[in-house]
Amino acid sequence: MSLFWDIWPAIKLTLSLAFITTIVLLVIGTPIAWWLARSKSRWTIIVNALVALPLVLPPTVLGFYMLIALGANGPGGWIASSWGGRTLAFTFPGLVIGSVFYSLPFVVQPLRNTFAALGSGPLEAAFSLGFDFRKAFVLVILPLARPGYLTATVLGFAHTVGEFGVVMMIGGNIPGQTKVLSIAIFDYVEQLRWTEAHIVALGMLVFAFITLAITMSVDRRIAQVQPGTSR
């Protein structure tokens, strides 16, 4: 029980970071994914490569450049100065910004694939009924894209929960402010507290497995009840 109370601030901070990051990613990821799925512009290759960059870029490299950008001499310093701050590095807002960049492909790619699979038929049918784009997107596209949004939400959330390299670079290890669960495990290992490290790591492993299993199950059920979907 003492371990739970010791780790509770890190749990709460991790869940808050994952929740806020996922909401932001769904908001900004939707138009990006829609454009990537529908546009014929040659710029889609470049934008798609930039979005997917965190998949192959070492987290410490991304974290290093994010640290510079969020620091006192970068854009983060200018933003922080608007409320009297000096930097966004080593702050919770800085963690959110870094997490959004790092988890972006895990939200954009499932949405892009879903929008591409829908094709132009549903949108054209909605236009033929007199819907404008906003109404067609909300009432037609979004319901049809539920499996993609479910996958994007879970992947974005779970990936943020498991972040380490980027979080360590731009957030450090400040209890109650930037010390998330992955940093807590690192802390326990450094202190040779193997039992605590095993318990927290196992908890994250079980969380990841259950989350993915539930997502796949729900996604399969949605696919089975949709008209025209093969079983």
Rank of each mutant, 00 (worst) to 15 (best):
F157W: 10
R146G: 14
P175Y: 08
Y65L: 15
A184G: 05
S230R: 11
R42M: 12
V166I: 13
S120P: 14
V140N: 01
A33Y: 05
L13W: 03
A158F: 05
I170G: 03
G228C: 09
P54A: 08
I214N: 10
A201Y: 06
G29F: 08
Y102G: 15
F90L: 13
P122S: 15
P147C: 13
F131T: 07
F19A: 14
A125M: 01
V27L: 14
R42C: 14
A116M: 10
V189S: 05
L50V: 00
G84C: 02
E196H: 01
P58V: 06
G76A: 05
I46R: 01
F19Y: 08
F4L: 01
Y149M: 07
S41I: 12
T153Y: 02
F186V: 07
V138Y: 00
W83E: 00
I214R: 13
M169L: 15
F164D: 07
S128A: 15
Y188C: 02
S16Y: 12
I170K: 01
S230H: 11
L202T: 05
F92N: 08
P75I: 10
R42Q: 11
P147E: 13
A116Q: 09
I97A: 06
R134S: 15
F186E: 02
G119V: 12
L155S: 06
T229Y: 09
N73C: 06
L57C: 03
L202M: 07
M66R: 07
T211H: 06
A10Q: 03
M1W: 12
W78N: 08
D219Y: 08
W83I: 02
S99M: 00
V218G: 10
I7T: 00
F19H: 08
D6G: 05
I45E: 13
E124K: 11
L142K: 02
P227V: 11
S217M: 06
V24K: 07
R38W: 12
T91Y: 03
V100E: 04
A117N: 08
I174V: 09
G228A: 12
A223G: 14
T22R: 00
I7F: 11
I23P: 01
D219V: 07
M168P: 07
F209T: 12
F186A: 07
L3K: 06
L202W: 01
E124T: 07
A69Y: 11
G121T: 10
I174M: 09
A89Q: 04
G148D: 03
F19T: 12
P93C: 00
M204H: 10
A52K: 04
L192H: 04
M66G: 06
I214K: 13
I222S: 14
I32W: 06
T87S: 00
R86E: 12
L17W: 04
Q191V: 03
P54E: 06
K179P: 02
W8S: 12
G171K: 04
S82L: 15
P75S: 10
I185W: 01
S16A: 12
L62K: 08
S128I: 01
L3V: 00
I45G: 15
L88W: 00
V206N: 11
T30P: 04
L118T: 04
A208E: 01
S128K: 09
K40C: 14
T211P: 04
G148T: 05
R146C: 11
R134M: 15
F131K: 13
T60C: 01
L25P: 02
L36Y: 06
A10R: 05
W5C: 13
M216C: 10
S41Y: 13
A158R: 02
T14L: 13
R112S: 03
A72S: 11
L55A: 10
D187N: 03
M169F: 14
